[in-house]
Design a protein around this nucleic acid. Sequence first.
RNA 1: GGCGACAUAGCCAAGUGGUAAGGCAGAGGUCUGCAACACCUUCAUCACCAGUUCAAAUCUGGUUGUCGCCUCCA
Length: 490
Amino acid sequence: MKIYNTMSKSKEEFKPIEEGKVRMYVCGPTVYNVIHIGNARPMIVFDTVRRYFEYKGYDVNYVQNFTDVDDKIIKRAIEEGIDSHEISQRYIKECQADMQALNVKEATSHPLATQEIDGMIEMISDLIDKGYAYNADGTVYYRTRKFEGYGKLSKKNIDDLEAGHRSIQVAGEESKEDPLDFVLWKPKKEGEPAWQSPWGEGRPGWHIECSVMSKKYLGDEIDIHAGGEDLIFPHHENEIAQSEAANGKTFAKYWMHNGFLNIDNKKMSKSLGNFFTVKDIAQKYDLQVLRFFMLSAHYRSPLNFSADLMEAAKNGLDRILTALEQLKKNLEISKDRENQRNLQAGAQSDTIKNGAQEESMTGQETEALEELRRLGEKFEKAMDDDFNTADGIAAVFEMIKLANIHAAQGSTSVFLQEVWNQITTFCEILGIETERKEEVLSQEIEELIELRQQARKEKNFAKADEIRNQLLDMGIELKDTREGVQWKRI
RNA sequence: GGCGACAUAGCCAAGUGGUAAGGCAGAGGUCUGCAACACCUUCAUCACCAGUUCAAAUCUGGUUGUCGCCUCCA
């Protein structure tokens, strides 16, 4: 398995710190609002990474935090005139609901920054003791130049950084020894949430949270640290400086970063009016479509989002789901048929041996299964190469085609079962929910469908079509298949 | 100004040395009362220029263009 490591800027063979285990930390959202589709990309991508590791037999300890103390949360709380804790709790719930709809598995642990203050104070004290941090009137700064490897992840030259910084130095930073130093602890301002510390009341800086939570839940050294590419600098760079200075060990072996999501080729921003929350998308699409769309490109490539592309993703995903639906039906029919046959055979013979007897596969089926196995290898090869989900999806589409051609009602149930198992296994890795949600139709609609069937029987096609159009207006699309009428909501 | 990424068909997107996966859309056909589904057929020489090589989308140099980071940001 190869993973592209931002640190080395190359693909490296994955070797876990501990055999059979993966320790993985993904930077989570700051909960000051509902998440947008850009937030969703790393969640989807790294959830898929996790699923693939699990498929490969690894025991994955997956940690994703919620940053629940931050300027933006406080600002929002003041606007609404409520406690900032209420704000963060509200959006954590919303975020979890969105993640569930995106079929993102729950993290092994998802710590909250505000629950880990003690650990942060401990690490900051430790950094001060070691000379990597200093207290200036209640604000604690990290002494950036003291850490030798600073800039090693983002490949930045510390002197260039300083040159850039001079022109944009912010007011209130006069107490810093060096403009490059960043905040570990900031003193309380009126109306802000605060905790007691050796440097007075205050709250932690953003970067220290992740260092502390990663250490607590995964240990001093972890396998994978992941997040959006915009976090490379300064967030991850600072985490490295904190953790490695405090722990004296390499922080993370592999650094994974997903590319940005653009809207109509522009960066998503509120001012451009091209800002979409996950909930916006959910109004029009099943969020599975969004997930499928995001996995259709490599996670490190920039990805463009548009209405047309979502339509294309929806159509593609439908093709997969339709085929699986058919496959499942055929499997049931085939099983029933074999059961019938066994019952008859059983009635004729005195002894029924070993329960139901399955039909054995035909030569053609064996060949098809062989082809399916090859496609499975193609899928794994793609995923082994830095999680190439686009190639993986291509393999799934080929499997779908194979199923559409070979898996018929008359096929043996062993064959159909095997095809089903194979394809759904790979869908599972991608996080595609393979069974459409069972929906109950209203009585009115049921009756209309029945009426139309009668009209068809009587060859009154004008009436049949009229009813079909009527249902279409109601959002129900019908199709007549060999197994009867099927419908779906559009 | 510093650092970096990318440029493949109408659209999306794989492919890092041997002559272009897959999907969406389109066209033609089979099936179906019609439609939908499905299947078959069809649709590119890889931004440009120069070079290395028996052989390049794939390596090297240059040109043009797009984008990102350097500041809160997934």
